[in-house]
């Protein structure tokens, strides 16, 4: 099962290595990691999308992360009401003729063209991972020259609905 786990960490040298090394050592499958600074000086936030077998494995993952001295807080937010986004850049083979066709495809995704050359356009899209997936699938027939994704970053919404409603907001399950 896929889970979204966030960790706030002390922004010290080596902390990323600690965390990824730990996950590798314990044989967890990481689908994506994104890291960046937060509102607090010296504190960074990591968002992991992980694929775990069962609840026990998941519990191990959060507990092992929590054990790290530089890790301040770990949360599995998969079943919470969350906002989650990732950004992807897709360089698509295109000539001037099909450029407008691509324009038409990406518009409903509120994606934009951020670079144009004679043989290609680069599309930038932001959103939930499944939306990014969907757009990439649509662009694939044109020929994707290069693709880069940031990995998901997420946090909980300002308002959390009642427990019973959580599941419907789940993003990745």
């Amino acid at each position: 099962m896929k889970r979204i786990v966030t960790a706030t960490v002390h922004n010290r040298s080596g902390v990323l290595n600690r965390v990824t090394g730990l996950l590798a050592k314990r044989q967890f499958n990481i689908e994506s990691i994104s890291v960046g600074r937060t509102e607090t000086d010296g504190v960074s936030k990591m968002t992991f999308v992980v694929d775990v077998e069962d609840d026990r494995k998941l519990e191990q993952l959060t507990k092992q992360l929590n054990k790290q001295i530089d890790v301040l807080k770990v949360s599995d937010i998969t079943d919470k009401a969350i906002v989650a986004r990732e950004l992807a850049m897709v360089k698509v083979i295109s000539n001037p003729q099909i450029r407008s066709e691509i324009q038409g495809i990406i518009e409903p995704f509120r994606a934009s063209i951020i670079d144009v050359s004679k043989e290609s356009v680069t599309v930038q899209v932001t959103g939930k991972s499944d939306k990014v997936d969907a757009l990439i699938d649509l662009l694939r027939p044109y020929g994707i020259k290069e693709l880069a994704r940031t990995g998901l970053t997420a946090f909980t919404r300002g308002h959390q609905p009642q427990v019973a409603e959580f599941k419907s907001y789940s993003l990745l399950k």
Binding site: S13, G14, N17, R18, K25, I69
Partner: peptide, 16 residues
């Protein structure tokens, strides 16, 4: 030695 001992220590430091 930081890289080598990260997985086998409770914690490690390099004094900067």
């Amino acid at each position: 030695i930081m890289g080598i001992t990260t997985p086998i220590t409770k914690h490690n430091y390099q004094v900067q």
